[in-house]
């Protein structure tokens, strides 16, 4: 065997190992960046539960004040903080940014999902056939809307126009499903808060199967689930005050942050969002603020 051939083999092995490491073995940390305590007029946040972001915009569901706040993200710095307050919005708990920067909000009191124009004008509520009780929702990269319908034990998938495309039944013998998330390749994940289990349904599947069991060894009460562009799963542990990281292969990759009052710490964290630049936002409910972190890989 020639020296060239040996070098080639070495390079192939080295690159493969690097890819495997980057995909599955990379260490993920979140580093504290800044906190948002108020809007652009200095009015303080109150029990915020929702955050949504893309590379340029951050939206906050300031739940206790029945309003949304809109910020722009420029080179990792937040600007603005204009209030969006409309009568159709009584208790915004979760927020998402749809295709064409439309704003979608889940109102926990009305149990409805409102659709707003990018500048915050009310357009409509999503309408469903029969009795539907949404608990949460997510929007994928194509603008499809995934609604967690706890009354009928299913996930409803709607297209951009709000028409139902399909539905996926909840798994058997679940505890209580609090949230859902969609990964970049279209897999749907469910978070069971009481059994501390994550379920998965592949893109075309009509049912869920367990993806990660036994999370209660690590987590107190997971309440929100988010997936980044690389497929890494982040869970906010409501009672534990931490962010738990789960790898694409389902391995537990540790806790980030912790329970507390000081900046960088969390008390009863709620919705999380991550943009493609690695900006990471958490609605830090009981600390009346939203915190910004940077994902470090």
């Amino acid at each position: 065997m020639g020296i060239d051939r040996l070098i080639k083999i070495f390079l192939v092995v080295f690159i493969s190992l690097c890819i495997v490491n980057l995909t599955y073995g990379e260490s993920i940390k979140i580093k504290y960046n800044s906190s948002i305590y108020s809007d652009d007029r200095g009015s303080g946040l109150r029990l915020p539960e929702g955050v949504a972001c893309n590379d340029n915009i951050l939206l906050i569901a300031d739940t206790g004040n029945s309003r949304l706040l809109k910020y722009t993200i420029e080179n990792g710095v937040l600007k603005g903080g204009a209030e969006i307050k409309i009568p159709e919005l009584t208790f915004p708990q979760r927020v998402e940014i749809g295709a064409s920067n439309e704003i979608f909000i889940f109102d926990g009191k009305l149990r409805k999902i409102a659709r707003l124009s990018p500048d915050g004008k009310f357009k409509s509520y999503l309408s469903f056939e029969g009795s539907v009780v949404p608990k949460s929702f997510k929007i994928d990269r194509f603008g499809n809307i995934y609604v967690l319908d706890i009354f009928n034990e299913r996930v409803l998938v709607l297209n951009q126009e709000g028409n139902q495309i399909r539905s996926i039944e909840f798994p058997e013998r679940y505890g209580f499903i609090s949230d859902l998330a969609i990964d970049p390749i279209g897999n749907v994940f469910l978070l069971d808060s009481t059994l501390a289990v994550i379920y998965i349904a592949s893109k075309e599947s009509k049912s869920f199967s367990p993806f990660k069991n036994g999370l209660n060894d690590y987590i107190n009460f997971p309440s929100n689930i988010t997936i980044d562009a690389k497929g890494v799963i982040y869970l906010s542990d409501l009672a534990g005050g931490t962010i738990s990281v789960i790898g694409q292969d389902g391995t537990f990759r540790g806790h980030q942050s912790g329970y507390g009052w000081k900046e960088g710490l969390l008390r009863y964290p709620s919705q999380i969002c991550i943009n493609d630049k690695g900006d990471f936002f958490v609605a830090d409910r009981e600390n009346n603020r939203v915190q910004m972190f940077i994902v470090i890989r």
Binding site: T90, F91, G108, K109, R111, V133, K135, I150, F151, N152, E153, F176, S178
Partner: peptide, 12 residues
């Protein structure tokens, strides 16, 4: 009429 619900109440 309340803001916050005990969600299992609205489950199946």
């Amino acid at each position: 009429n309340k803001n916050r619900l005990h969600w299992p109440l609205l489950s199946k």
